[in-house]
Simulated assay, not measured.
Amino acid sequence: MSDIRLSPDLDVASLAAAFAGRQRLHIPNILASASAEAVASVLEAETRWKTTVAAGGAHFEVPLDGRRAADPARQSWLDEAAVDGTSPVPQYIFDTRRLGLERVGLDDGRDTQDAADAVLDWLNSPECLDFLRKLTGDDRIDLCDAQASRYRPGHVLTAHNDTSVGKNRLYGYVLNFSRDWRADWGGNLVFYGRDGHIEHGWVPAFNALNLFVVPTRHAVTQVSSFAARDRLSIVGWVRSHQKVGPQTREEARSVAY
């Protein structure tokens, strides 16, 4: 299993000052080069993803063999999945893969961890947690969760704020492994202001970390039909063991401007 490491060239003090200004930050070249290449190689070669769908009133997850449903009888579910553009409810269609020990020996036929799995261990290592505490100035940080994600043409995640009752989410993050991505391919992480306009956004960039405070209203724009490759990343939340943020559905709705 690969040894995941932060880049030795990071200036943590400067990054912390930048994060404090807007409570969100894009950090290029976050990992040591060898670590980034190892993770990217795994995600690029992966075939056993699952497509997860919560769109148009449908909710399901379908294991894939490459880019098709592993069970041919379920391919129609994927072909017919579509976002209801009139609904205010957050919706999504994208591919996902479990990470870490919870995946090993389950339904993907593997019994060892790879470089992508190693990212979850690294995110919860003293090195990474200490880095995140220094970066955010937040001593409540205790753990991170993670999943690998793949967005193909047509995949999307509509506007939401990441608030989830009882999860104690402090920050959302996207660790990008998409090479040479173009903005007009879609798949951009965008942030909305209270007026509904896009006030900020980032294009997927290889070996870059995007970090932002929860709650923040944001979305992943739909990947275009002409995107030349898939949008690959590891995503999740930086969390606390302490009770933080809205703890009831009513409180959560109150911050979903």
Rank of each mutant, 00 (worst) to 15 (best):
P126M: 08
S164K: 13
N168A: 03
G137A: 10
R133Y: 05
G137R: 07
A146H: 01
F131G: 03
D139K: 11
L135Q: 00
T158H: 11
L170T: 04
V165I: 15
L157V: 14
C128N: 09
G154I: 06
K134S: 10
Q147P: 03
F131P: 03
T158W: 09
G172Q: 03
K134N: 06
P153D: 06
Y151C: 06
N176Q: 15
S149K: 07
R133N: 08
G166I: 05
D162P: 08
T136G: 05
L157A: 13
D139T: 14
Y151T: 05
F131K: 04
V174L: 14
T163W: 06
T136Q: 04
L175N: 01
L157H: 13
S149G: 14
C144R: 01
T158M: 09
D138W: 00
Q147C: 13
R133P: 05
A148I: 02
L132Q: 10
V165Y: 10
G154E: 06
D145N: 15
Q147T: 13
K134P: 00
A146L: 03
D162F: 08
V156T: 14
A148M: 05
F177N: 04
N176M: 12
H160N: 07
S125K: 11
Y173F: 15
D145Q: 08
L143P: 03
R140P: 07
S164D: 09
F177K: 05
L143H: 13
Y171H: 14
R133D: 03
L170A: 09
L132A: 13
S149F: 05
R169L: 09
Y171C: 14
G137C: 10
D138L: 01
G137N: 09
L170G: 04
S149P: 06
P153V: 04
D130N: 15
G154C: 08
Q147G: 10
A146S: 09
V174F: 14
T136D: 06
D130P: 04
G137D: 10
V174A: 15
N124C: 12
R169V: 09
S164Q: 12
L175V: 04
L157G: 07
D138K: 01
R169T: 11
N168Y: 01
T136E: 04
D139P: 12
G137V: 07
T158L: 10
S149R: 11
N168E: 01
T163I: 13
D162V: 11
V156A: 09
K134A: 10
K134Q: 13
Q147L: 14
R150G: 10
D139M: 11
L143R: 14
C128M: 14
D138I: 01
L175A: 04
T136F: 04
K134Y: 00
G166F: 02
P126F: 06
D142A: 14
G172F: 03
R169P: 05
G172L: 02
G166L: 03
G154D: 05
R152E: 00
Y171Q: 12
Y171K: 13
T136C: 07
A159W: 15
L157Y: 11
G137S: 11
R152A: 00
N176D: 15
R150I: 09
L170I: 10
A146G: 04
L170P: 02
D142V: 02
N176L: 08
T163F: 06
